[in-house]
Design a protein around this nucleic acid. Structure first.
Lengths: 224, 224
DNA sequence: TCTTGATGTCAAGGGCGCGTCAAGAAGGCA
DNA sequence: TGCCTTCTTGACGCGCCCTTGACATCAAGA
């Protein structure tokens, strides 16, 4: 799913954008100022950023430069300023597109699709290796002893969340909400069933897991 | 030097753009209608296209589709039409940006720089070979046991997307949006029908595919 | 040793996603 | 206009995946 980071200091605009984007199947993160935007971008690795230029703390162009210091993800600027100089500055700082407010939602969504479409797929280190299995996050495939292991969608989703937080503890609540949806949070029996299945498919000794670890009372942890 | 193809049916606009671009060190080709634009693009291999939508012979969106059939060079649409639907149609057809007339030259140049900057260096399309069929992405042809296989446009498009992501899983949503358009995403029955047709035409044993694989609940994968 | 709460294991059913087939609709071409 | 190809849509059955409940196991504390 495409992840969008919406940056604007006006909550109602953020809310309106978030609702529209989620309705179209996008995954939405939000930030209310430049600092939060830079943190969220580093944290959540969005696929595209919608950036308002008029932020309370940092100038929007500086946010663009900050992002461009380490990533080439598409940045679409939203701004009430029509001045040519503003547009040139933002585009030359590294923005991909510049949309002036007020804008039509249809047009914005089309520009968003265009930006995502031409984006170079981010190739981070998507392959995680342990001594008993290998997880390729980009290709969505898991292999063990050279042979591919078939995972069901839920099994894969759960494994993916754990691997993306490799080494860190992920609470049961966080796992449930990420994999099953925000309205879940207490159905820990799901986790028990699926963790057992993952261990059976991936661990050499499923009853003494070395990579898919339980932290009793807290959650689970993937150890590389 | 960056080569720009300017397409517009009004000579004075072409001239004004050409002068400005040449003054900035761009190499400029021009075309006055859609046919000439397609020919010039194939002939001269520009690095970016400035395309007016209101051409006398072919609809601008058709020109975009024609170009996108074989190249991903940036296309910036220039148009007097402000209607949202026009913009959406052009962007979804494959345009990278949409600038409404009248536009500021500074802004256009900035958008031009942005488009060129993020352009992916053109890589030639390779030939993908499996033990039962061969896909030539550049020539848009598929052969099996030495003989060409006829694919319908949709079949080809679907196969192309899968082959370009060889080895990686492509989600049903991504496939639908890429082949049928961004407003699709849930019509998985299309995928079932067309995957079955591709398998029937390309796989030795269509009911046990070895290259066009289903990942239940997640998507499809082409395996070389 | 017993109790308690949390985790691991197993099996069964119901639902739904997928493959398959075929007919109707739409579009291109003579 | 009429034919042919291609795309869309519906129906159906099979198999698999998710869910759920029951029970076993384990660790910690009294």
């Amino acid at each position: 799913m495409t992840r969008v980071l919406v940056v604007d200091d006006e909550p109602q605009i953020v809310r309106a954008l978030a609702i529209n984007l989620k309705a179209r199947g996008y995954d939405v993160d939000t930030a209310g100022d430049g600092t939060a935007a830079l943190t969220a971008a580093a944290d959540r690795h969005p696929d595209v950023v919608l950036l308002d230029l008029g932020l309370p703390d940092i100038d929007g162009v500086e946010v663009i430069k900050g992002l461009r210091g380490w990533t080439r993800i598409p940045i679409i600027v939203l701004s009430a300023r029509h001045a040519s100089a503003e547009k040139v500055a933002a585009l030359d700082a590294g923005a991909d597109d510049y949309v002036t407010k007020p804008f039509g939602m249809d047009e914005l969504l089309a520009r968003l699709r265009a930006a995502v479409r031409r984006a170079v797929p981010e190739e981070e280190a998507p392959v995680v290796v342990t001594d008993s299995f290998t997880v390729d996050l980009a290709a969505k495939r898991v292999s063990r002893d050279g042979a591919d292991v078939r995972l069901t969608p839920t099994e894969w989703h759960l494994l993916e969340v754990l691997v993306r937080h490799a080494g860190r503890l992920v609470s049961q609540r966080a796992l449930l909400q990420e994999v099953w949806g925000p309205q879940y949070g207490t159905e820990t029996n799901y986790l028990r069933v699926y963790m057992a299945q993952l261990r059976r498919k991936l661990e050499h000794d499923p009853s003494h897991p070395r990579h898919l670890l339980t932290e009793p009372g807290m959650g689970y942890r993937f150890e590389g």
